[in-house]
Deep mutational scan, measured.
Amino acid sequence: MAEQVALSRTQVCGILREELFQGDAFHQSDTHIFIIMGASGDLAKKKIYPTIWWLFRDGLLPENTFIVGYARSRLTVADIRKQSEPFFKATPEEKLKLEDFFARNSYVAGQYDDAASYQRLNSHMNALHLGSQANRLFYLALPPTVYEAVTKNIHESCMSQIGWNRIIVEKPFGRDLQSSDRLSNHISSLFREDQIYRIDHYLGKEMVQNLMVLRFANRIFGPIWNRDNIACVILTFKEPFGTEGRGGYFDEFGIIRDVMQNHLLQMLCLVAMEKPASTNSDDVRDEKVKVLKCISEVQANNVVLGQYVGNPDGEGEATKGYLDDPTVPRGSTTATFAAVVLYVENERWDGVPFILRCGKALNERKAEVRLQFHDVAGDIFHQQCKRNELVIRVQPNEAVYTKMMTKKPGMFFNPEESELDLTYGNRYKNVKLPDAYERLILDVFCGSQMHFVRSDELREAWRIFTPLLHQIELEKPKPIPYIYGSRGPTEADELMKRVGFQYEGTYKWVNP
């Protein structure tokens, strides 16, 4: 592979701008107003304001973009700056750019259920340069409990009458099928589907988006991507930290609602779906819905739930269990780990287990898709061969690698495990991989909904998990304890083995 010439960040961002501006969906010269509902909250200060700053800094926003914060707290732009700027990672050389960014910011205080507050917000936006005809993007960085009041008031008082209007809704989209349907029906009564952007930030990850290209742009994968060759698929999300004093919020939802029903299920769809007619948003989402419709409700015998306990040999936070978090209700049975087996009941995947695993306070930070292939028929190497695996590593250190057998150097035919490896950090030294939120917010500006969740996708996802969630809430089974920093409950490994996964433990990928 030829040595790549190092590029400056300015040059890299210039390439990104060229890609972005050559499309006809990006209205570079139009006025846009980006409204952050819930501007005083954690999500706004840690993710949304920093993301908008990065896009502005790199010249990736339309030229005439204004940012308006809205929340109940009586704040000023200076207050917003004070709480969000520490997350910007701005350099001293960017000081003038930073001043320009905050000059485009404003803030309006108001209630979430008060019509007069929204009329005041609308008047404020109209007073901005060309504000009355601007395109408006409303980001709901809010708890779902206020979605209905907020969307109703936005629709009645704050819509642009000339430009387009788009609304970005953060997960969780309800707690179960019934609450999700209620919320979807409410929002759909106010906005068209092409105006609604239900954001799952995992769909903005580079390697998640790469799944489609790997599958449908490489001839070698087509013939082997089926039940005849693939023994099982494992989708993993692991965090090495616990709730760390923020367990009160987590306890309301648990690990299945927080990660599995959305992030992991979306990745499953991209692995299992048929080739779409095109890369058009609805063509892709149509195929994802077909996959979900082929999955039956989760069966309790295919589920393992766990909850982390303190590690007596650990240090600091590792010595504390979930129930030691003062914000967690006493005696909570909320799971911090889950392993679930699903089956896609169609011709391509009949009988292939899709194993979804996620948890907190585990032994490493990792998100990946792992396809394990069947054993080689007619073994001539005296059971020395391990199964081939194709691994798409989402985070950290984005990579695609194939675990395969090669001859060990020497005189004899002794096979050993090795890999074919594409590590993004080595291959793409001159490429700026956008943060997931950067990519998705740019998608909203461009009107691309491919990486957002459609209402029928959402409904099918909740259909699969709601009976299990209701059973857990009714019966309150005690989750299996696992030690902070471990791989999780051993019962999860036993479940995976029972459905056909072979864990060798003899080879570990190392970032080159």
Rank of each mutant, 00 (worst) to 15 (best):
L137S: 06
F173R: 01
S189I: 09
E156V: 11
L177T: 06
R257W: 02
V108R: 07
I48P: 03
G248A: 10
I220W: 10
M212S: 01
G14Y: 13
Q28R: 05
A25M: 15
H186L: 05
H129P: 11
K95A: 12
L43D: 00
D79T: 12
R57L: 14
A25L: 09
G204F: 03
G242N: 05
L20K: 07
L214C: 08
Y202Q: 03
F88I: 14
S40F: 03
S117L: 07
P240C: 10
V213S: 12
I15T: 06
E170Q: 00
Y70F: 13
N229S: 15
R72P: 00
Y70T: 11
Y107D: 00
I255R: 01
G222W: 14
T151A: 14
A109H: 14
L96I: 07
L98A: 05
T51G: 08
R120Y: 14
I256M: 14
S184Q: 13
S84R: 07
N218M: 00
T10N: 12
A90T: 12
Q22V: 08
D228A: 10
T51I: 09
A134C: 04
E244M: 15
H27R: 15
L55Y: 04
H186E: 08
L55F: 03
L203I: 04
A141K: 07
V169F: 04
D24K: 07
P223G: 06
D24V: 14
E18K: 14
L75C: 15
K205F: 00
E93K: 07
N135L: 07
G110Q: 11
A25H: 15
F241L: 06
V150S: 14
F66S: 08
A231T: 11
P223N: 15
T31L: 10
V233Y: 02
T76W: 07
V208D: 00
V150T: 04
E99W: 02
Q178T: 10
P50S: 07
M207G: 05
Q161F: 12
V77N: 13
V169G: 02
L211T: 07
A231N: 10
G110T: 03
L96E: 07
A127T: 06
R104N: 06
P50H: 01
F88V: 05
P143A: 10
C232I: 03
R198N: 04
R257L: 04
R72T: 03
V208S: 04
D30C: 10
I168M: 07
V169I: 12
M37L: 09
V208W: 01
L203Y: 04
S179V: 09
F173M: 09
L177D: 15
G174V: 05
P172Q: 03
D251E: 09
W225C: 04
M159Y: 10
I154Q: 00
E85C: 08
L177Q: 14
A115M: 13
D30V: 05
T51Y: 08
R81C: 14
M207W: 03
Y49G: 02
K46M: 03
D114L: 11
G23A: 09
V233M: 05
V108D: 03
I196M: 11
K82V: 14
F237L: 11
T145F: 12
R57S: 07
A109F: 08
N135V: 09
N64A: 07
I167Y: 07
V233E: 03
I36G: 00
T91I: 10
F241N: 15
I168G: 12
N126M: 07
A109S: 08
N105R: 01
S189W: 10
F138N: 01
Y70I: 10
Q133V: 07
N165M: 15
K95Q: 10
Y202R: 00
S117E: 14
A231D: 09
L235K: 02
Q111T: 15
F237S: 06
D113T: 14
A115D: 12
L183D: 01
K82F: 11
L98G: 05
R198S: 03
P223K: 05
K238A: 09
A141F: 03
Q22D: 09
H27N: 13
P240S: 11
Y139V: 02
E193W: 01
K47S: 04
S180Q: 05
A6Q: 15
S184Y: 10
N229T: 07
E239T: 09
T51L: 04
I167W: 03
T65R: 00
P62I: 04
R215C: 01
K152Q: 11
D176C: 08
I67H: 00
I67K: 00
S157F: 14
R9Q: 11
Q195C: 15
N185S: 12
K171P: 00
L7D: 10
I52Y: 10
F26S: 08
E244T: 05
I80Q: 12
A44C: 07
I220C: 14
D30S: 10
A217R: 04
L214A: 06
I199Q: 08
L60T: 04
R81F: 13
N185L: 08
G69C: 08
F56C: 05
G69I: 00
E252G: 12
P240N: 12
I162G: 06
L203A: 04
A127K: 13
Y147I: 03
L177P: 01
R104H: 14
V213G: 08
G23P: 10
T151G: 04
P62F: 05
K46N: 04
Q178G: 12
L235Y: 05
P144G: 04
H129I: 09
F102M: 05
W225D: 00
E252A: 10
F191E: 02
N165V: 08
I224E: 06
V146C: 06
Q22C: 09
L75R: 07
H155D: 10
K171Q: 02
G59P: 00
R192L: 10
E244R: 13
R219S: 07
F66T: 05
Q111K: 11
P86V: 13
D251M: 01
K152L: 09
E148I: 11
L16N: 15
K152I: 09
E94I: 02
R74E: 10
P143H: 05
W225G: 03
N126H: 14
S188Q: 05
E206G: 06
I162L: 15
P50W: 03
L7P: 09
A71F: 04
A217Q: 10
K89P: 06
F56W: 07
F253V: 06
L211F: 06
L55T: 12
V12M: 05
R198H: 05
M207E: 03
C13G: 12
L55Q: 11
Q83H: 11
W225L: 02
R227W: 04
Y70L: 15
E156A: 11
R219L: 06
R215L: 02
E19I: 15
E252W: 07
L96C: 10
R57Q: 08
A78K: 15
L235V: 10
E239C: 07
I33Q: 07
M212D: 03
I187Q: 08
T236Q: 13
R57F: 03
F102C: 07
P172M: 03
D58F: 14
Q178I: 13
G248L: 13
F253M: 08
I67A: 04
Y197N: 03
F56D: 04
V77A: 10
S40T: 09
L20Q: 06
L142A: 06
N126R: 14
E244L: 12
P240R: 11
W225N: 01
E252Y: 13
Q195P: 02
Y118M: 05
E85N: 07
R198G: 01
Q22P: 12
R175T: 07
K45H: 10
F138Q: 01
S157C: 12
Y112N: 02
L98R: 05
T151Q: 06
A149I: 15
M37N: 10
S117C: 09
D228I: 07
F241I: 07
G242A: 07
F138L: 06
P50C: 13
Y112H: 06
L20G: 03
Y197M: 03
L130I: 07
Y139F: 11
R72H: 00
F191P: 03
V12T: 15
Q178R: 14
S29F: 15
A103H: 13
W164T: 13
I35A: 09
S29Y: 12
R192K: 15
Y112R: 02
E19V: 10
I199R: 02
K82H: 10
L96G: 11
L16D: 13
L211V: 14
E252V: 14
G254R: 00
L142D: 00
I234R: 08
K95E: 11
H155G: 05
H124S: 07
S84Q: 15
R227C: 07
S73Y: 04
H27E: 15
H129A: 13
L214T: 08
F66E: 08
V150H: 00
D30E: 10
G38S: 02
L61G: 00
S29N: 11
S157R: 13
E252P: 12
G204Y: 02
F191N: 03
G23D: 11
L142F: 01
L137V: 13
H201Y: 02
S132V: 14
R120K: 11
